[in-house]
Design a protein around this nucleic acid. Structure first.
Length: 497
RNA sequence: GACUCCGUAGCUCAGCUGGUAGAGCAGUGGCCUUUUAAGCCAUUGGUCGUGCGUUCGAAUCGCACCGGAGUCACCA
């Protein structure tokens, strides 16, 4: 969209002329500060009881009706909006002619005055003074509305995401999603903090990326003349802290994955990982369940509708083995099948399976296609194949093909992934070396041998339980949003032009 | 990456069986000292996402490209 559009240029030109008129009259159209005494929501909240009292507030003009020597405007602040009556006679000398006549939709003003009820019954401020705080020179989207319903609503998703500030002005209810996001994050932090966890920060720029199976972003440091990767996970560094003697650590920060984008994936996303020494995946299951329940409870409701399903986080989360689920939904005992038998099963269920997939990949595929769509109520799925879990400990009961791992599913979506963390340095080395072989065979997402990590583990890592949670998805669930773009203020977009 | 849909004025949209672009809001000028989608009168504004093609003629038909949304595939 060109910025050279003549109509837009003309609107801007007229606003610049008004700006000059305000300056010429001796007023600064871009003030340094304003003593905003009252929040509009507080004024509205008091309602008719406040009539006759004097208030002083500020906000953005979102409606403007001029009638010669008097005007009405609605001023919108962080949480609410109120009508302001601007009357020539009631304002100080020169304010009406020099400022009010040069105001536009989108200007930010400060006003003071007495509260009254208009003829049509709306609580309003009868302005006895007005200060212009910021002059708008670029028009806002249409803000016409009646009874809270917008006409010509600003709902083009591309414009809303690219120009989020306009979205927040035109659709102020969107702010509640991001306020809730902030509350979810602070509640999660508080939960971990009160349970003795220490929040840490580990490198975003990594020379060897690891801790997950994904393709990274690559960048370059000039002074070191060396490539760096933006982290795909913070797992390996957090384990080094466990080895160093922190017994409970967590990091709540962004990861970056150079992969597909859709309503569940943004290239940069917020992840939470927490690790507890001397623990295992089963204890972490209890803890994670409590974390989810506590967060939902303190930020909203435990029971809600999402994607057409009723989700109830107050009930105990189910716990099921992947093999039991496969038996339940496929009617086949998969536990004794080898890779070929699994492939045969997949083909019977008319899944497309590439020939070069290994045991774990086939099982994962079958699970994703045939089981995940059934997982509505919260369920911890356990017993994952070792081949797709290179950082998890083998099953303690002697099944060498599976590991101690869970993924938490709610409403068909994965929310958490956890292991009894592998702490045997020799086994860890074998696992990463076998990943390296997969990589040589062309698996771009296979993990890399991180020698520093392996040396750290050789120092001795206590048994540890670790969990990763996709925070954006948690926010989606608890705010009932269907797209990750609606819980990220500035989702990744291709550049225009 | 594949498929489907979308892209016309600052915003929301109409026009699309091809005949050379319209509305509402916003803007501008005027009237208006309790309006609220304020009203009344007048009025500005668009190389119809970009390019190529078909045609006497393209916003409209075709192809390619750019951008977006949705669905699917892989990853959280």
């Amino acid at each position: 969209m060109s910025t050279e559009q003549k109509n837009l240029q003309e609107i801007i030109k007229f606003r610049l002329e008004k700006l000059d008129k305000i300056k010429a009259a001796g007023f600064n159209p871009y003030s340094y500060n304003y003593n905003k005494v009252d929040h509009i929501a507080d004024i509205i909240h008091k309602g008719e009881k406040s009539v006759g009292s004097f208030v002083k507030t500020a906000g953005r003009m979102v409606s403007f009706r001029k009638m010669g020597k008097a005007s009405f405007t609605h001023v919108q602040d962080n949480e609410s909006k109120i009508q302001v009556y601007l009357k020539n006679d009631l304002l100080p000398e020169n304010i009406y002619d020099s400022i009010v006549r040069n105001l536009d939709l989108g200007d930010i003003i400060g006003v003071s005055g007495e509260l009254f009820i208009t003829k049509t019954g709306e609580l309003s401020i009868k302005a006895d003074d007005l200060t212009i705080l910021s002059k708008n020179i670029r028009p806002l989207p249409n803000l016409k509305e009646k009874d809270g319903e917008a006409f010509n609503a600003f709902e083009d998703k591309e414009l809303r995401y690219r120009h989020r500030q306009l979205d927040l002005i035109a659709n102020p209810e969107i702010k509640s999603i991001f306020k809730k996001r902030a509350k979810i994050i602070s509640t999660v932090r508080a939960f971990l903090d009160t349970n003795g966890y220490i929040e840490v920060e580990t490198p975003v720029l990594q020379t060897v990326y690891g801790g997950a199976s994904a393709r990274p972003f690559t960048t370059h440091h000039n002074t070191l003349d060396q490539s760096f990767y933006l982290r795909i996970a913070d797992e390996l560094y957090l384990k080094r802290l466990i080895i160093g003697g922190f017994e409970k650590v967590y990091e709540l920060a962004k990861n970056f994955r150079n992969e597909g984008m859709d309503r569940n994936h943004n290239p940069e996303y917020t992840s939470l990982e927490y690790y507890q020494a001397y623990s295992d995946v089963f204890e972490m299951m209890d803890f994670t369940e409590n974390l989810f329940r506590d967060t939902a409870d303190k930020t909203g409701e435990l029971k809600f509708e999402y994607s057409g399903h009723t989700i109830d986080l107050s009930k105990p989360f189910k716990r099921k083995s992947m093999f039991d689920l496969l038996e339940e939904y496929c009617g086949a005992d998969v536990s004794s099948m080898d890779t070929d038998a699994l492939k045969k099963l997949a083909k019977e269920k008319s899944l497309e399976i590439e020939d070069d997939l290994n045991y774990g990949q086939v099982l994962d595929k079958i699970f994703g296609e045939l089981i995940e769509p059934h997982l509505i109520d919260p369920v911890f799925v356990t017993d994952y194949p070792k081949a797709i879990s290179p950082l998890a400990k083998e099953d303690r009961n002697g099944n060498l093909d599976i590991v101690e791992r869970f993924e938490l599913f709610i409403c068909k979506t994965e929310f958490a992934n956890a292991f009894s963390e592998l702490n045997d340095p020799l086994e860890q080395r074998r696992r990463l070396e076998s990943q390296a072989k997969l990589r040589e065979l062309g698996d771009e997402e296979a993990q890399i041998v991180d020698e520093n990590f392996l040396q750290a583990m050789e120092t001795g890592m206590p048994p540890t339980g670790g969990v990763g949670i996709g925070i954006d998805r948690l926010v989606m669930l608890l705010t009932q949003q269907q797209s990750i773009k609606d819980v990220i203020l500035f989702p990744a977009m291709r550049t225009e032009d």
